[in-house]
Design a protein around this nucleic acid. Sequence first.
RNA 1: GGUCCGGUAGCUCAGUUGGAUAGAGCAUCAGCCUUCUAAGCUGAGGGUCAUUGGUUCGAAUCCAAUCCGGAUCACCA
Length: 457
Amino acid sequence: RNNFLGWSVAEILKANGYEVIKSCIVNDRGIHICKSMIAWQLFANGATPQSTNTKGDHFVGEYYVKFNDAYKKEVEELIAAGKTKDEAEKEAPIMKATQQMLLDWENGKPDVMELWKKMNGWVYEGFDVTYKMIGSDFDVTYYESKTYLLGKDIVQQGLDKKVFFKKEDGSIWIDLTAEGLDEKIVQRKDGTSVYITQDIGLALQKYEQYKIDQSIYVIGNEQNYHMKVLQLICRKLGMPNADNIFHLSYGMVELTTGKMKSREGTVVDADDLVDEMVATSKKHTEELGKVKDFNDDELKELYNTIGLGAMKFYLLRVDPKKTMVFNPEESIDFHGFTGPFVQYTYARIKSILRKNETGDGGPFATGPLFKLEKDIIVTAEQYPAAIEQACAEHNPSVIANYVFHLAKTFNSFYTEHSIANAETEYKKQLRLKLASLTANIIESGMKLLGIHVPERM
RNA sequence: GGUCCGGUAGCUCAGUUGGAUAGAGCAUCAGCCUUCUAAGCUGAGGGUCAUUGGUUCGAAUCCAAUCCGGAUCACCA
């Protein structure tokens, strides 16, 4: 959802005349990375994504799970040996090894760095495959391994300005109780920075680097508090970018059975989901048998277009702010308020336009219009307003709803009035114009959602 | 407990700068393919807009209280 939202909002901003720079932050360091590394050292026997024929990011993810399994087991054993839960969690050998590895990483220990680079490389390879498949791209990528030290000098300045204060143990904090929040740490007692410190530094760096008017953070609503704190700190420090920070907060996607939890395996993997959607589009297409003359490449492209279109539309048709429910059993429908419905309307119009000669564009005689003809004109005229609203609200669902409404309006007209056998040549040309207009808007609107439209389906 | 977000049809969601009989899709039921692609179209049933009170000529929409659900309040990121 994050990816599709970011993409779509960027397109919508561009459509409103803004210049957009898409950036991505990769969490490529920290304790979670070390967990996978330790588990790989312990259990892999030198296995690689190639040797096991596994996608790189999934491969590394498997070792993250293996770490947690092993860790859990060790903790249970220690508790059985008489330790308290807290002691056991701290003393488990595999956890100690992981923490040591994090220190080694920060000190740049060669063999750790080498392993880190190798495993990260696998993850990136996997991500690349997924990003390419779903049509995602970024102009800038920030790696946390390179930005995690940012913001430390700002902390020092803040201390001088008395925005921050130092506790007896040397840790540095900001007091936000006057704003209804809590005290928040910005630097550990050992002098290392925390998450928010990096964000302060990165926010300023982005601002100085690109002179942006607005910095839009596409982040889940679980971090609403964090983003509030970030903006507040920037404001208190008098940073020039403070008011440019906008948190595009989106709700989580939940399953009918409840929240997705990676540790409990109740997650729907993006790759699996896309595969499933493409397979479903293949099944439907074959059943309908309308494209028997397509060659293999054309078929593959069509299945991707429909499958991805269905998925993206499904995720973008809901207000981003809202938590949404996804039912994996029922899968995503291809009828009604869906991507394929809109794509189908487009393909049908294109078919008409191929089969009917458009006139020389001479002046239209004025004449009475049927209600359904007027409906299309009225709806088409609303498109610019929909784009503006979507932009103002940072909300692609406005476009999804609009495009669906337009497609539905056209379909009603299509069933009621023939274009090829219109009452007069004038009527025919008028209707071809309306059809063409509708197709153009559908194509444009779907593009704003990152969805392709097929010429036939 | 503090802060924030949400509760609209069986399900998933629109609609909230206050305005007429609260709208879609799915699901259910009844129709429509000798005519431009039926992934479509037409119709039916289905609602105490969480509850209560308030403001108003008028409230799903604004205010208050209550109930229910979620997020968050880490020397994790």
